[in-house]
């Protein structure tokens, strides 16, 4: 049974890879149109406002490091941060990133430095722009409250592997009346963020950020593949239910 599920998993990965590669190679022939998610539009505006006002953007990347199953969420958060930091790197106040895992802190520093380099603002990069705020979920939340309240932040991006402690962060951001884009893979945390953040993303919208913010063609294609796979799963679920109904 284990072999069958392993092979099914491997088949899904290979199929997704072929689809990803195929659509990527088709290049401009694939015209993807996605539904409007206002949070991303407002996020672009918030970056622009921050750059114009000389205020900072704070990225809170959560507590998922490289050694747990939620790593992909952190990778998606890093990708979003790198893209947005590229626009705000040359601002009067450089963007900062806080994380609850040391490996993620190092990755955030590396990504911030790269964003500054490509923005031609390498001299404004500071090593403490990427910070470890705490190593347990609530100590992390307590550590992140300080930059939200005390530093000149106009936009908070709470994207990554959070638990319900994210509610404390979004509440702090709301009290400071700053823009808050919030997304996570945890269902309880999504419920908390839906109630407390001004711009929450639900479910897989976190993984669609790259495509919506136009970070590259790979992100656009991967969102397209995601949609194709979702329809296949929907068909399989309906087919399974119909077969069960028919007594097969």
């Amino acid at each position: 049974m284990q072999i069958v599920s392993n092979l099914a998993g491997l088949t899904l990965v290979i199929f997704s890879f072929i689809l990803l590669l195929g659509l990527f190679l088709l290049k401009d022939r694939v015209k993807a149109s996605f539904r409007d998610i206002p949070a991303f539009r407002k996020f672009d505006q918030a970056i622009g406002t921050a750059v114009e006002d000389g205020t900072g953007i704070h990225f809170s990347l959560g507590s998922s490091g490289i050694t747990n199953p939620r790593t992909a969420t952190s990778f998606a958060a890093l990708s979003l941060m790198r893209h947005a930091a590229g626009f705000s790197a040359a601002s009067d106040q450089a963007p900062i990133a806080t994380s609850g895992d040391a490996t993620l802190t190092i990755l955030s520093q590396d990504n911030l430095r790269t964003a500054h380099y490509f923005a031609g603002a390498e001299q404004s990069y500071k090593a403490n722009s990427g910070r470890l705020a705490g190593v347990t979920p609530f100590s992390y939340a307590a550590g992140v409250l300080a930059p939200i309240y005390d530093e000149n932040i106009s936009a908070n991006v709470l994207v990554g592997g959070f638990g319900v402690e994210a509610g404390l962060l979004s509440d702090a951001a709301a009290r400071k009346q700053s823009f808050t884009l919030a997304a996570t893979d945890s269902i309880p945390a999504q419920a908390v963020l839906y109630a407390s953040a001004s711009e929450p993303l639900i479910g897989e919208e976190l993984f669609a950020s790259g495509a919506y913010l136009e970070t590259g063609r790979a992100h656009l294609v991967s969102l397209y593949v995601q949609d194709v796979l979702r329809w296949l799963i929907v068909a399989a679920l309906i087919g399974g239910a119909a077969m069960k109904l028919a007594g097969l």
């Binding site: 893979d185 993984f207 992100h219 995601q226 799963i233």
Partner: peptide
């Protein structure tokens, strides 16, 4: 699905 595609990227 998002995790799968992020991993593949």
């Amino acid at each position: 699905l998002g995790t799968l595609l992020t991993g593949l990227r």
